[in-house]
């Protein structure tokens, strides 16, 4: 195990967050605060409660998930894409470091950033609404597994992308819409039966539902199913990453 190698990548990536503090941390916190003001205060004054939970509190898990997913993907994608773009990837590829260790460094750093961000957003939400977390262990478990899975997805994206445009496509055109349609701001149970069935094909419904259950004990779908889907997604991402390194896809000629 090249411990120093993993640490070098991890600390380099964490230092990048320090340099882009505004973009990495402050900006998502401001966005979340705006969501609270618009959805929590303005719309919440009319909706008041969903399944016995105040609307302001109800959207907290969804908002954290929204930020967690987009930031995990974006951070991890940029982390590996940038050295490919500027050419410094040669050093990583020529180093005595395994594929697993490279992933551990990049994905570990991206997931760490996302988890810290998720916790910051959670802390921010305490300023707006009173929240009681029913299953803190599961809350942290979902936070960790989701950050890890979507950082892996971001890593895959960063290797697949051949330009900055492609790098933006997945977070903007896939993750954000699926999160919004996955019950971030509402319970899927309020949808007509047909659309409720359609949402079951959206993998993010399971993540948001499970995460919300850890807060309030209410869920749109079965919690075991949420955990299983999260682990399945993690396994698929791991399989794709290991295939990348086995074949040298977009990394080695």
């Amino acid at each position: 195990m090249n411990f120093y190698g993993v640490r070098a990548i991890y600390t380099y990536e964490m230092a990048r967050t320090g340099r882009t503090l505004f973009q990495s941390v402050v900006s998502p916190v401001i966005s979340t605060s705006l969501y609270f003001i618009v959805f929590g205060a303005a719309i919440g004054s009319r909706i008041t409660h969903i399944d016995g939970v105040s609307y302001g509190a109800f959207i907290v898990p969804g908002l954290i998930m929204l930020m967690l997913l987009t930031q995990s993907v974006t951070n991890a994608a940029f982390g590996i894409y940038f050295p490919r773009f500027v050419g410094t990837i040669y050093e990583i590829l020529s180093a005595p470091i395994s594929a697993f260790e490279i992933v551990l460094g990049y994905v570990g750093a991206a997931a760490t950033k996302s988890i810290i961000l998720g916790l910051i957003i959670l802390a921010t939400s305490f300023l707006f609404v009173p929240i009681h977390i029913e299953h803190p262990f599961w809350m942290l478990a979902f936070l960790f597994l989701t950050a890890l899975s979507f950082s892996l997805l971001g890593f895959i994206l960063g290797i697949w992308a051949e330009g900055f445009e492609k790098l933006q496509i997945v977070p903007l055109l896939i993750i954000t819409p699926l999160t919004f349609l996955g019950g971030t701001f509402y319970s899927t149970s309020v949808l007509p039966p047909f659309w409720r069935t359609v949402t079951l094909f959206n993998p993010l419904v399971y993540l948001i539902s499970g995460f919300r259950w850890s807060f309030f004990g209410i869920a749109d779908v079965n919690v075991q199913m949420s955990v299983a889907m999260t682990l399945l997604f993690l396994a698929v991402c791991l399989a794709i990453v290991s295939w990348f390194f086995k074949t040298g896809y977009r990394l080695k000629n």
Partner: peptide
Amino acid sequence: PQELTTDAFETPPATLRFSRGLFGK
């Protein structure tokens, strides 16, 4: 390598520390 590829925002000691760590030292 032949191509002039370096980081942009690091300092020279930081980028050397990165290289050394990457090679397991």
